[in-house]
Simulated assay, not measured.
Amino acid sequence: MIMTTRPATPYALIVGWDGVRHDLLPELELPTLSAVAEQGFLIGTTMPEESEAKTSTAPGWSTNLTGVWPAKHGITDNEPMPNHFDRYPHLLQRLLTDQPDRQTLACVCAAMLGSTKGPGPILAGGVSTLIFHDVRTHPLGPIGRDPLVAEDARHQLRHRDYALSFVYFASTDKTAHLEGVGPRYRDAIRQEDSWTGALIDAVRRRPTFSDEDWLVVITTDHGHRDEGGHGGNSWQERQSFLAMARLDADLGFTPPAAVSNVDLAPTVLRHLGVTVEADWDLDGVALQQPSTTVDAGFAEPRLRPGC
């Protein structure tokens, strides 16, 4: 009798570290990010120029989650404005449209992600379970809310079945606004790395983990000036990065020498078995295609056309 092995079910976890500068990461001891980079890759990326969009939360996460630049999704600032999410929905919604029998999770604290503040909610629709710890209801803002996000997300990943999860931490951004990118900011990055490690550990403890194929992504929406603050056109503010790996497995592809934030959505969707259609008009591409090689680690970012 011929025995066949059932392919592992694909899952994906995206972890957002708000306002984290890529150029500072090599200076820090970040065991979780380093493990992801070693298993897969960590590559610096560049956000659009200020003439296209502010280097701010709403434009950055709209770009990361939709796979298109601000000229298409329409979010260029944190202020109220119309969007084009009906034409360019975020990847959680794309997944549920394609695979309505699966579930998605978003565990966040930023008001623009989970409420109508500014141009939000950016995560409108397509989220089976939205856990929203509103930063506006805690005196410490995201610094007080992030531990709750971490604990809730850890529990959900361990005990529930979500094909695609997005977990967002904001205390790095808040710390930089208060104190610049000095010691406390670096400690905040280390803390978010630790929380991310706990999320990955929760995934590995799932009773069905041996039958699952998990892609993990860590990214950010913008950087910060040395003194703190963002929204402008400096290279410190326009920094971002993509880190990506499959848990306990080879990544299965070698990323090109140049990647962009808009590549995140199509790459995750392809891992989850979603066919990225040409008429979606995405600016990004799935990275699981033949490409030139790049050493994993702290590579040079790709500049967008015109940058």
Rank of each mutant, 00 (worst) to 15 (best):
R158Y: 02
R158D: 01
H159Y: 04
H159P: 00
Y162S: 08
V167T: 11
V167K: 10
V167C: 03
Y168N: 08
F169A: 02
A170D: 12
T172W: 12
T175Q: 07
A176R: 04
L178C: 00
V181C: 05
G182F: 03
G182T: 05
G182L: 01
P183G: 14
Y185A: 09
I189G: 03
I189Q: 01
S194F: 07
G197T: 01
G197A: 02
A198S: 09
L199R: 09
L199S: 04
D201G: 09
R204K: 14
R205K: 09
S210V: 07
S210I: 04
E212G: 02
E212F: 00
E212A: 00
D213M: 07
L215F: 03
V216M: 09
V216R: 06
V217D: 14
H222G: 09
H224Y: 01
H224N: 04
E227W: 08
G228W: 07
G229W: 15
G229S: 05
H230V: 04
G231W: 08
S234W: 07
W235C: 04
E237Q: 02
Q239K: 00
M244D: 14
D248N: 11
D250S: 11
F253C: 10
F253W: 11
V259N: 13
V262P: 00
L264S: 07
P266Y: 06
P266H: 06
T267H: 12
L269E: 08
G273P: 02
V274A: 01
T275E: 13
V276G: 11
W280E: 09
D281I: 06
L282I: 02
L282T: 08
L282S: 03
D283R: 13
V285D: 15
L287W: 00
Q288W: 04
P290H: 10
D295T: 13
D295E: 15
A296Y: 07
A296G: 03
A296Q: 02
G297M: 05
F298C: 09
F298D: 03
